[in-house]
Nucleic acid binder design. Structure first.
Lengths: 343, 343
DNA sequence: CACGTCAATGACACCGCTGTCACTCGCCAT
DNA sequence: ATGGCGAGTGACAGCGGTGTCATTGACGTG
């Protein structure tokens, strides 16, 4: 009697469970989704049958029938960058018990790969997006707009948000740290950048504005689009020192570069901060354990993830969202690597 | 005429495209999946219509109808751990052009969360799994077995592989690095471990075996299940030195701890390796840029990811797999942090 | 006692796509 | 002229669930 049609996949289905229990399949479906609508004894029998048969619901079929995927997409530029793994943790925490599945993708800092991912996730029927702020392709924008789905851009604060946004003002942060260095007495301040995405560029703009406001020179700037590594931090340091020997301090666009530069200084016997002051960006763990401890801009990575997830969740539940754009700010951590004890 | 039934989601469907072009929907489907079966002029018209209408295929429907999801699941313990982000890169690279979608999940080192993820991905109808080796729940094993899907365990070499496996022998690696330290002349060698998962435990076992083989003391061992951090590396160093003052060298179960210990030494003015030798595990970038450079065991993380993906892909394509278990080995990097220049 | 109400369950169509098989038509070999 | 063949296209029935509405029977109420 349990003969299967030719096309049947062989998996245990709702029908199999229903037949085993002797009820209709819709009752099984209800027992799983609206347990209070099914009588207790029947529910118990159904649970046993499910366990016995090893039934696993088919989400594809469920989503198709209900036009609900209960999934959202989170697209980050990189998964090897510690910055995003903390954001991810924040997002995960919020969505953990929400009943939504988080589909995670990484674009490798490519807006075309991002576009591909958006397309893929749309074809999966996700109900919302968390993407990182910055540039998107025209097509990405069109896809998101046409989908009508809620979108949260995170990390930066876009000038023209697609929908919602959570992050911080990277230009202001770059300006703040540079101003602090100036206040400490540094005059020849360089900039070292790698993986110059939109936000790194903004930090650079802040650095430049601060210097110009004080009538200081803003030529000691070296950047590359290569991925950021410790090694590259050391290389940038050497390049900057080589080309701009007067440099007293360098603001690196992230902590990896700053730490790499610090290590290079140690290797060369350059004293930090006496011979060279170094500042980073993000406030990663490493800045707090090296000697001297690294000055940096602490960014609220995990809160950004949490807040982005909360915003999206509210919109998914059709709850009102107080503010569509949330600036979570930043904190300056002025530490030993830029101390004032100079000659 | 384009009136929609009440249940229609409002999205553009294959039918909409078909009506627009004036052919049947199966032809549109074919134009997308088997382009050579559709005449050239028609194909062009179809492409235009798809572009114009903004049609995005519904993967749920497609998977349901074809009983193929073209997706595989990759479950790693952690996404903040740099080790796995490299594995991930290897996997991604192989699957990039394969037509398979990689669904990525992280278990947070919890076998119960892993079980939940396996269940979730099965309900998505994935066609294969890459999971990390080590302990699994009974239920996880049952689910995987019952599914009949190909499974690759990666990182370690399980004694009883579920199906396929790619990795290295962590016990042998722990033994090798400890033996190397002994050969260098160290006699009081400690072990510091955090996030003591299955593989870290194996490294510890290797450390112990090496010491015993040489009649050396194996009590200077401190471990914790807490997540591994730089800070914790420093704390473990202090604890070990405090409780086992004779310790001359410490093998840490990963590079984060080793680097943290090195930084703590620097802070305290302890000379490395003269006062204390330090070794790590994995060969992360940082080991190569700090001063002194850290001795470590270099593990083939990216190749593990690539190989795991290749194995899975072969099985998905029903190609023969030469070896179900692949040991990719490891390399000792004996560097300055364990140099022989002792007093 | 008739009636409305509510809890519990079922029947049926449909979500959007693909497997399968059938059909049409032009062309070439016989 | 006839038949066979392959390229190009279509009809139909699912895939495994869920939305919607109907049905049944027990119970409380005036």
């Amino acid at each position: 009697m349990s003969r299967r049609s030719r096309r049947n996949s062989g998996r245990v289905t709702l029908d199999d469970v229903a037949r085993h229990v002797g009820v209709s399949k819709i009752t099984i479906s209800r027992a799983l989704r609206q347990p209070d609508k099914v009588s207790a004894p029947l529910k118990t029998k159904i649970e046993h049958a499910i366990e016995l048969l090893g039934y696993i619901p088919n989400r594809q079929a469920g989503s198709l029938a209900s036009a609900r995927s209960h999934a959202i997409a989170l697209i980050v530029p990189s998964l090897s960058n510690g910055v995003f793994s903390e954001v991810l943790r924040g997002v995960d925490e919020v969505f953990q018990q929400s009943g939504y599945q988080v589909l995670l993708g990484h674009s490798g800092y490519s807006i075309h790969e991002e576009e591909r991912l958006v397309n893929t996730y749309l074809s999966y029927g996700v109900e919302g997006f968390i993407v990182s702020s910055g540039q998107h392709t025209e097509r990405t924008l069109a896809l998101l707009k046409r989908s009508g789905l809620p979108v949260v851009e995170m990390m930066g604060i876009p000038k023209a948000p697609l929908d919602m946004a959570v992050g911080l003002d990277h230009e202001a942060a770059g300006h703040a740290i540079t101003s602090a260095l100036i206040e400490l007495g540094y005059r020849n301040i360089g900039f070292g950048g790698a993986r110059m995405d939109f936000r790194a560029q903004e930090r650079l703009n802040g650095w430049r504005r601060a210097l110009r406001e004080h009538g200081l020179d803003d030529t000691a700037c070296l950047t590359t689009f290569s991925p950021s590594t410790y090694h590259l931090g050391g290389a940038l340091l050497n390049d900057i020192v080589g080309r701009f020997p007067a440099t007293e301090a360098i603001f690196f666009c992230n902590d990896d570069l700053a730490a790499g530069a610090l290590f290079e200084c140690q290797r060369q016997g350059l004293r930090v901060p006496t011979d060279m002051a170094v500042a980073g960006f993000n406030g990663m763990d490493i800045t707090d354990v090296v000697s001297p401890r690294l000055t940096t801009v602490v960014t609220p990575r995990r809160p950004i993830g949490e807040r982005a997830a909360q915003l999206l969740l509210k919109r998914l539940n059709a709850e009102p969202v107080e503010a569509r754009v949330v600036d979570l700010g930043f904190t300056l951590a002025l530490r030993d690597s830029t101390s004032i004890e100079r000659a």
